[in-house]
Design a protein around this nucleic acid. Structure first.
Lengths: 367, 367
DNA sequence: TTGTATGCGTTATCAG
DNA sequence: CTGATAACGCATACAA
């Protein structure tokens, strides 16, 4: 049989080189290796370079598991999101991963699937994985928060983003939903609309409650009173929008504008209105919320609120890292409130507003 | 000063309970605890239940870091994707996370940002984090593959998805892009189109090359010869589609159909065609690739190919776990080829095809 | 400036 | 069935 070459680059299993290996090779102690690699102050420059060279030669990779176990602090961050689909959460995760990676952290991602029980299990898993901190956007069905007590009691930094806990003093990065709703509704009114309806989301979620409140504030500001008939509580899906719009258009005195707390719902509303021969925005103006990609593609394009997804991700990481680095500080919850941006588009623009500044360019993905 | 309560549920740092703590409490050895918790065969049933009860009482959480360090095998999987945006990658990641989590694994996610150097760093980070396996969809700029050698040489399972290495024997889960292009082009021809153009992507990427080949095969099959003028190589963005369509429509003999290797590009083409007053699909039929969410929303809706994102994620995890569990087997690369699904929509449907079966319902996201 | 010794929390290998 | 002990790879308090 043909003799096989020996000492060739082993194609099979190959145990990675450890600090002990380097120490043996150089005839020094592991301590020295450790110090050289972690740039400790008391280390000879020539020793240091010798170690670094050898490390490079053997392609030494530090074992972060061992390091984390020893130090009691890993370089892992945990994210819990309801799901990774649509535009919003992927974008936030994108921002988070980018910021975390820049800071030398890796990110473990979990989906709660909008299920509180799953969310609890996610927390357990992340604790078990010894992450250095957790970022979470609450599931839609989460109503009790005691699964987060363990996180706090361990002194683990915890930051909520977008969907946060209510009225508790927690770290959170959220959009100013109230303001978003306010400026959006105000814009509809400024277009001459008299009867602005509202497609509202589940009111136990702060984001939807705040959007509702912003809507109310705009009405109040304009001296208008609320017509209960023109507020519909839905799950914010596209079919919801279709159905509610059908009801509204059958009213003796239908609305002439709709502020939807979500883009999918706004889309449904717009589709149904046009199906029934109404002109958008002339007969009925429409605005959504979230700046989903499709809002630029519909006919007409849909006015919406940009949620600063990436900024949200970055801000979340920043807040978390501050807590992690500032180690043993007592516990001083902080909130970051992002300002929404109104993107005025065809679905609501009846007359040119005062010098509408050029809006941000549409983002185009490469498949 | 007011005396502080002692021994209250510590609101600050709280060191987690370890197996040693349980052992001390019960007056048994750590070994026993370990066996009880890991359901070892040689353990008394009453001892076992005692341990489990105590573990529950103290809310014991195993330290996976320590476990992984000792066993040399973690419960972490790594994903490397070009980016987490658009529809495709988030969906695949969704599928991956779901499947991995079901199998008791957590997932670390990295973005290469379409940058080969970043991709290499991602690999290093994942190795350092001691993941049990790596899933990767190659960056657009990756042309050399030696950064994956280290992965193999460590015996670490590696599975590519969607964007795989060329002509190497690797584990991969890919869509049958050739077939997708074939059935899509065939469909356009069956609608009576005579001059089918092709919006092609970067040909060093296998997915785009295969789509091009599928297009050619359909032409050949129909006895048509290739008109070089009707193939445009682009980066597959929406503006690319606009620009190329403008060129094509200026030809003395313009195409009457376009098969685009991507939806964004197809969208641009459709927009430009309509802007120039052409009817879609009557004057020019259009089909895309990827089943982006917006293809259901345009006017007309865009015919496209569904890439089975979630199945791809699941299949990737399945393949990876097989390799992980089958530990020391030599190295037998396997491929999973997913079948594409043609979704016939308004942009290409000139005449009813033979009993077009009802297609899968549109997926609606909740914001 | 370098080395020695110990421990992080778990599991595997031995004996009893 | 149970226990003592070593080891995984790294970092640090302490001594030299």
């Amino acid at each position: 049989m043909a003799p096989r070459k020996k000492n060739t680059a082993a194609p099979a299993t190959n145990t990675p080189v450890s600090m002990a290996d380097l120490a043996r090779e150089l005839g020094v102690s592991m301590t020295t290796i450790s110090r050289a690699l972690s740039d400790h102050y008391s280390i000879g420059p020539e020793m240091k370079s010798k170690v670094l060279k050898l490390a490079k030669k053997y392609n030494y990779q530090p074992n972060r598991l061992a390091s984390a176990l020893r130090k009691g602090k890993s370089k892992l961050l945990g994210i819990i999101v309801p799901y990774i689909e649509g535009r919003f959460f992927p974008s936030v995760v994108h921002g988070i991963e980018t910021a975390a990676s820049r800071a030398g952290y890796n990110v473990i991602i979990c989906q709660s699937n909008e299920d509180a029980a799953q969310e609890r299990r996610n927390v357990e898993a992340l604790l078990s994985a010894q992450v250095a901190g957790i970022m979470v956007s609450l599931s839609r069905t989460t109503t009790t928060y005691k699964h987060f007590d363990k996180v706090r009691s361990r002194g683990l930094p915890l930051v909520f983003f977008d969907r946060s806990m209510e009225g508790e003093d927690v770290n959170a990065v959220v959009l100013n939903d109230h303001e978003g709703a306010l400026i959006s509704t105000r814009h509809l009114l400024s277009q001459g609309c008299q009867r602005v309806a509202h497609l509202a989301g589940p009111q136990h979620m702060s984001i939807y409650k705040n959007r509702y409140q912003g809507y109310l504030a705009a009405l109040r500001e304009a001296g208008l009173s609320l017509d209960e008939e023109l507020v519909a509580y839905t799950d914010m899906t596209q079919p919801d929008g279709v159905e509610v719009m059908r009801r509204w258009l059958a009213l003796p005195n239908p609305p002439d504008a709709v502020f939807s707390a979500g883009d999918y719902c706004a889309l449904g509303a717009q589709q149904e209105a046009r199906r029934q021969g109404r002109r958008v925005p002339e007969d009925i103006a429409i605005s959504g919320f979230s700046n989903e990609a499709f809002t630029l593609i519909t006919e007409p394009t849909i006015t919406t609120i940009d949620q600063r997804c990436e900024e949200m991700g970055q801000a979340t990481v920043r807040l978390l890292l501050e807590q992690i680095e500032a180690d043993a500080t007592p516990f001083t919850p902080r909130q970051t409130i992002l300002r929404p941006e109104l993107l005025i588009r065809g679905s609501s623009l009846r007359q040119a507003e005062s010098a509408p500044a050029p809006r941000r360019a549409a983002k185009v993905f490469r498949p």
